[in-house]
């Protein structure tokens, strides 16, 4: 099986700063590929390159086997690469169904005038949210009344419904409580089972270990290799992220609780 997207030896320089110094990652359909790294490791730059925001300084992007050059995020979106940002593209004052279809509203013509097809929008929203395990009070419930985890789920469900092949989740669990995190991780698992390649960015090893199939650690703009589930232990990932030695010392002084 070929990967949906293959990023080969990607480099990205911003002036004299080398943000990415040759990173290779590939994502297969139906897997959850965790991208781990501490703050400043280059995770954000890397996913922005993947989603068409940045152009790589050097390196190759193969999408479904073809070399790809995304001019802008819209290109990447059209190809099927959806990103759910930390800053969610959700409007709290608007209903779930209005949010779900924002920018892609279904229309039905009456007397030649295109009207927003609320009926279809509501049905689809309820159905998609049910699939993700969230029972809404109604499709007209405002997003502001949902919890952080539920909002993430709406954003994910929306990306999936609009045909994402690769779903990039930028630290979806970083601001969530324990139970909400569990819900989001369960959602990731559901999405993966639908054959979508999930790129899960996090700096929480525990969250990564819970759903990840493969793990790539970024450190100072470089990959420290990709490991499969079962081939690597929690502590090893933690060490790689932090850059080894110092972490061992730090952990010792904190009594092994990190």
């Amino acid at each position: 099986m070929n990967p949906i997207i293959e990023m080969r030896d990607i480099q990205k320089h911003f002036g004299s700063v080398i943000a990415l110094a040759g990173v290779s990652v590939d994502v297969f359909a139906g897997e959850c590929h965790c991208l781990l790294g501490d703050n400043g490791a280059g995770k954000s730059t890397f996913i922005k390159t993947m989603s068409g925001v940045h152009k790589p300084t050097a390196g190759e992007i193969l999408f479904e086997g073809q070399p790809m050059n995304f001019a802008n995020p819209r290109d990447a979106m059209d190809a099927g690469i959806a990103t759910v940002h930390q800053h969610l593209a959700m409007i709290p004052l608007m209903s779930v169904s209005r949010n779900f279809f924002m920018g892609n509203e279904p229309v039905r013509k009456t007397l030649g005038i295109p009207f927003f097809d609320h009926e279809q929008a509501n049905d689809v929203t309820m159905e998609e949210m049910r699939k993700m395990g969230i029972n809404l009070r109604g499709p007209d419930q405002a997003v502001g009344t949902l919890s952080g985890g539920e909002r993430q789920t709406v954003a994910i469900a929306r990306a999936v419904y609009f045909g994402a092949k690769i779903l990039i989740l930028d630290e979806p669990t970083s601001a969530l409580g324990v139970r909400q995190t569990a819900n989001v991780l369960a959602t990731i698992d559901k999405v993966r089972k639908q054959g979508i390649g999930v790129v899960f960015i996090t700096h929480n090893v525990r969250h990564a270990m819970a759903v990840g199939d493969r793990f790539t650690v970024l450190n100072r703009g470089k990959t420290l290799g990709t490991a499969k589930r079962g081939e690597i232990k929690h502590e090893e990932l933690q060490d790689m992220m932090a850059g080894g030695q110092e972490m061992v010392q730090l952990e010792g002084s904190l009594g092994g609780t990190v």
């Binding site: 969610l88 593209a89 409007i91 608007m94 209005r98 509203e105 009207f115």
Partner: peptide, 19 residues
């Protein structure tokens, strides 16, 4: 309330960046 454009009006005012 009944058109796509209406949804865009809400969205533009709710959070222009997200919209």
């Amino acid at each position: 309330t009944k058109t796509r454009f209406g949804n865009w009006i809400y969205a533009a005012g709710g959070d222009a960046e997200a919209a």
